[in-house]
Design a protein around this nucleic acid. Structure first.
Length: 264
DNA sequence: ATGACCTAACTTTTAGGA
């Protein structure tokens, strides 16, 4: 079973790339972030034509997440618990039904950017991460295979950034952000990429500006966190770097995990 | 050496991103 995550930076602008990725990689599940449209504007028919069920939690103009699945989706739940007044569309959870009565739980996460630091945006980011930790702890108690995939907007370690000085005052690299991410792992989740490869220089985002892609000035901020029941099935992780070299790309590339779970 | 982008929207400028 292949489960992937991708910040597409507008699903309408990126439909061609999305179709290409779904056709070539055939993930069983794809978590999308920054779809940047309302539910009604999501290119549902085009995605369904490729054999996917679609769950969308959109928002006008920015944010917005979705989950695409070749297998049936159940218990589709938008919004992260813990703040009823938070209207930003950054979280969508669903249960994917597998043959033989098994299932996996998947969440598509678009964690707040938090810039600039020292403002309410950074406070919102840390509060959101606290809510995520509380919910992630509750999910662990279910003792199911659970995959929390998304754009975490956190650079976990210095080996995950090519130019640390350039990011020194950025919310993505602040000690508080990294500590909050580390607390997620401390609950018992596994960073899938790190479980498979301990090298530095493995990036998922390259800025559009200043030739960042050409100079390989990237950062690793798109992550797949696995519950113990999912981590036990982990086979491999792939960063789909080729998607960044296409014409008019997203600034993020897809990341996928292969789990030893039968889908037929 | 320096500067260099992209997207959506009540669009010709601003807000948001990272």
């Amino acid at each position: 079973m292949i489960i992937a995550t991708w910040n597409v930076n507008s699903v309408k602008q990126r439909l061609g790339h999305l179709q290409k990725f779904l056709t070539e990689t055939r993930p069983d599940v794809l978590c999308l972030q920054e779809i940047k449209c309302v539910d009604e504007a999501f290119p549902r028919l085009e995605v369904e034509d490729l054999g996917y069920n679609v769950a969308v939690h959109g928002q006008k103009g920015f944010n917005g997440v979705a989950i695409l699945s070749r297998l049936p989706l159940a218990d589709v739940t938008p919004r992260l618990p813990g703040n009823e007044e938070d209207v930003q569309s950054r979280y969508l959870e669903a249960v994917i039904s597998l043959p033989g009565g098994k299932s996996v739980r998947v969440a598509s996460i678009y964690l707040p950017n938090g810039n600039p630091i020292g403002t309410e945006k950074f406070t919102y980011k840390l509060a959101w991460m606290d809510r995520l930790r509380n919910h992630a702890a509750e999910l662990l108690a279910l003792e199911e295979p659970t995959i929390l995939g998304g754009d975490y907007n956190v650079i976990p370690e210095f080996k995950d950034v090519s130019d640390p000085e350039a990011w020194a005052n950025d919310a993505l690299l602040q000690p508080e952000s990294r500590a909050a991410y580390r607390r997620l792992l401390g609950l018992g989740y596994t960073d899938a990429l790190r479980a498979c490869d301990d090298r530095g220089g493995l990036y998922t985002f390259w800025d559009y500006q200043a030739g960042a892609w050409q100079k390989n000035k990237g950062i690793r901020i798109d992550h797949l966190l696995l519950s113990p029941q999912a981590a036990d099935r982990l086979k491999e992780v792939e960063i789909h770097k080729r998607m960044r070299a296409l014409d008019k790309p997203s600034d993020h590339v897809p990341v996928s995990v292969t789990l030893d779970l039968p889908t037929d």
